Simulated scan of single mutants.
Amino acid sequence: MEAFIFYVFAFLAITAAFLLVQIKNTARALFLLFVVLFAMAGLYLFALADFVAITQILVYVGGVLILLIFAFMLSNKELLADLQNTSKRFIALPSWQAAILSLCFLGIMLYAAKSWNEYTPTWIQEAQAKGTIIQAQDNNIKALGFKFMTQYVLPFEVISIFLMMVLIGAAHLSRKEDKE
């Protein structure tokens, strides 16, 4: 099942990225970028890079993508009119196909939840045997802050500069241009 979920994330990332560069509609391209970023976060989890996956979701999905959507919504009204003229639905699937797809995702989630409760992954069993499991009373925020400001200060600053550049870009895109 783990290999199946990995291949689903990989297929999702590759397919959405391919469609992203092919599509001409900006709103749908932003949605596909959202899918690509979430699929990549899932692949990071399979690579046991939990911190990178959480950072991917917080920084890129939570920050950058929201700024891009904000800039899109404030940009030209022609783009919004083009989106309204193409289709009344965002995804042009018939209702029965959408229901089947939703039920498949529900089945995968229920199977994963059942498997997680019945089978403990080996990395958790090893951590339990070594006694290195993080407890709720452990002071992880202090350790994380210390790591951010010592060992990971350069990546932290690069991400903050990147977010500032995205904010400037979003402000530039959303700026109203005078037509004289």
Results as ranks from 00 to 15, higher is better:
M1P: 07
E2G: 10
A3R: 09
A3K: 13
A3S: 10
Y7W: 15
Y7N: 14
V8S: 08
A10E: 05
A13K: 01
A13G: 06
I14M: 13
A17V: 03
A17M: 13
L20C: 11
V21K: 02
Q22G: 05
Q22H: 14
I23L: 14
K24Q: 13
K24Y: 08
A27G: 04
R28G: 04
A29R: 14
L30S: 05
L30R: 03
F31N: 02
F31H: 04
L32K: 01
F34C: 08
L37D: 00
F38L: 10
A39G: 04
L48D: 12
A53W: 03
I54T: 09
I57Q: 00
I57T: 10
L58E: 08
V59L: 03
Y60H: 05
G62E: 10
G63H: 00
V64G: 00
L65E: 08
I66W: 08
I66E: 05
L67G: 05
L68Y: 13
I69H: 04
I69N: 02
F70A: 10
F70P: 03
A71N: 06
A81W: 11
D82C: 06
L83C: 03
Q84A: 12
N85Y: 09
N85L: 13
N85I: 04
N85C: 06
T86S: 14
S87D: 15
K88C: 04
R89M: 13
R89V: 11
R89D: 14
F90K: 04
F90N: 05
I91V: 15
A92R: 13
A92F: 13
L93D: 14
P94R: 10
P94G: 13
P94F: 10
S95A: 15
W96D: 11
W96K: 14
A98R: 09
A99H: 08
L101S: 10
C104A: 15
C104V: 14
F105Y: 07
L106M: 12
L106E: 03
L106I: 12
G107P: 05
G107E: 05
I108Q: 04
I108A: 08
M109A: 15
M109N: 07
L110S: 10
L110E: 11
Y111T: 12
Y111D: 12
Y111C: 07
A113Q: 09
A113Y: 12
K114M: 09
S115V: 07
W116S: 11
N117P: 00
E118R: 06
E118G: 04
E118I: 07
T120W: 05
E126V: 10
A127K: 04
A127F: 05
Q128M: 12
A129R: 09
K130P: 02
G131P: 03
I133T: 10
Q135G: 02
Q135L: 11
Q137L: 06
N139Q: 14
N140Q: 11
N140E: 08
I141A: 07
I141F: 09
L144F: 13
G145S: 12
F148G: 01
M149A: 08
M149C: 06
T150P: 00
V153L: 12
V153I: 15
V153Y: 11
V153G: 01
P155M: 04
E157M: 14
V158R: 11
V158Y: 08
I159G: 00
F162P: 01
L163R: 00
M164I: 02
M164P: 01
V166T: 04
L167S: 09
A171Q: 10
A171E: 02
L173N: 06
S174N: 05
E177S: 11
E177M: 12
D178F: 07
K179A: 05
